[in-house]
Design a protein around this nucleic acid. Sequence first.
DNA 1: ATATAACGTGTATTTTCTACACTATCATAA
DNA 2: TTATGATAGTGTAGAAAATACACGTTATAT
Lengths: 231, 231
Amino acid sequence: MYSTLTHLQSTFTADCVIFGFDEGELKVLLVERNQYPYKDWWALPGFFVEHSETIDNAVERILYEHTGLRNIFMEQLYTFGDLKRHPQGRVITVAYYALLRLKGQSTLKPHSDYVRQAVWHPVENLPELAFDHANIIARSLEKIRQKIKYTPIAFELLPEKFTLTQLQKVYEAIIGISLDKRNFRKKMLNYNFLKELDEKQEGVSYRAAKLYKFDKRKYAKIFQNDLSFKK
Amino acid sequence: MYSTLTHLQSTFTADCVIFGFDEGELKVLLVERNQYPYKDWWALPGFFVEHSETIDNAVERILYEHTGLRNIFMEQLYTFGDLKRHPQGRVITVAYYALLRLKGQSTLKPHSDYVRQAVWHPVENLPELAFDHANIIARSLEKIRQKIKYTPIAFELLPEKFTLTQLQKVYEAIIGISLDKRNFRKKMLNYNFLKELDEKQEGVSYRAAKLYKFDKRKYAKIFQNDLSFKK
DNA sequence: ATATAACGTGTATTTTCTACACTATCATAA
DNA sequence: TTATGATAGTGTAGAAAATACACGTTATAT
C-alpha cells in the first residue's frame, strides 16, 4: 500500500472561498483562526482532508464546521502546492469556491474550536490574511469574473425574486464597470430565461420595480448546445 | 509539524494529459505501464509528487521521466480525489494538460523503468485505460473545447508556419464540427494576429497554400483588455 | 493537354452590439 | 394637495459581427 512510503505522503488541506452579495458589494467569508499557525489572523475556512472522505465531502464538512453553512454547491478552483505557502512545511491545498445568497446575518457560528467566528468581508477591503489566502481569493475573483460572462452565476448571489436593477448591480460589482441600463435589460430579457412576476418590490420609498425570477429550466434548454458556434 | 500526523497524510500524484495534432486528428500521449497496479495497461504519464518539489515542478519532472519531453508549458486542470479511483487506497491526483506541436515521431523514449513506451493515440479511439484516466482525458477535452473559443490554443498544436486550412482543421478537430472556409478565414484574418508570410507550402501535389505565423505580440495587445464588455 | 485536388475569394442578409435621454410612478415631506 | 426626490421603465438608429452560399484559379502529376 502506498501510504507506507512516507516520503510520498503529502499534507493535504481544502479551503473554501465563499462569496456573497450585500449592500451592493461583493463579500467573502473569512474566519478568525483560533489555532497556530496564524492564530488570531483572518483566513479562509479550511482544514485537513481526511483519508476516508472525497475532496468534495471534505470541503463540505470543513465549511460546516467553520461557518455552520450546509448544502452549499461549491466548485473546485485550483490546487496550490508552493513549498513556502505554509510556515510549517509543505502543505498542498485545494481551493473551492461558491456563490451564496446571503440574508443579512454578517456573523456565523462555527462548530469547531479551531475558529472563533466567521464574518463577511467586502472583497474590496480585506484584512491581512493567513498563508497565501489573499492570493487564493484573487484567483477566485478572476475566476468568477470570467465565469459571469458565460454562466448565470449572478443569480446565485441574489434572492429568488429580484429586480433588474439588483441584477445589474451584481454584474457591475463582479466585472467592475458600470453598464448601460437599457442595453443591460435588453440583453438579459432577450435571453429569455428571466420570468417576469406579477409582484413588485415592497418597502421602498420610491416607485417599486417589478420582480423577476431566474428560470433554470429555460436556461438549461437554451444553453444545452452550450454557447454558439454555427458554421 | 503536520507531517507527523499520519491520518492527515495523503498520497498525492500528478498526471499529464498531453495533446498533439497529426494527420488531421487530435491525439493524446499515453504510456504503457511497467509496474503494478495496472501493469501492461495504457495510462497517462503520472507519478508521485515529492515533498521537496512544487506541483508544477513535479509534473514537469514526471513528464520528462515518462516521455523524454521537456519544457512543455502545462496548465492545471483539476484535482481528483475519489475514494475508489486507485485500487490500493485513496490517492489524490492533480491533472495537468498541455498542447504540443508534434513532429512525426509517434513513440517517445521514457527515462524511467516504470513505463515501457510513450505513444500518441487518437482521442477518438483510445484503448482501455488505467485508473480513472479515461475520465481525466474526457475532462481535459471539455476544457480545451471551451478554451479554444476564447484563447489561441490552436496555434500550440501547429508548426510555426501553417496554412489557413491546417488551422481550420485544428478548430474542426477540437470543436467537432466542420466550418465554412470563407467565414473561418474572414474571422481569423480580422483578428489581425496572423502574419502572412512570403512563403508557400512545399511538397504538396496541388496548388500550394500561403503560410502564416501566429503573432503573439499582436495577440497580447489586442486581448490585453480581455475579451470585451463595453457598456 | 488534361485531370485532379486544394486554393482563394465576395456579397447580401440577419443578428447583435452600442450609444444615447426622457417620461412615468410612487412615497414622502412641505 | 402639491411639490420633490428617487428610481423605474422604455426605443431607435447606426455600426459591427455572423452567417449562408459557389465558383474561377493554380500547381502538380500523368
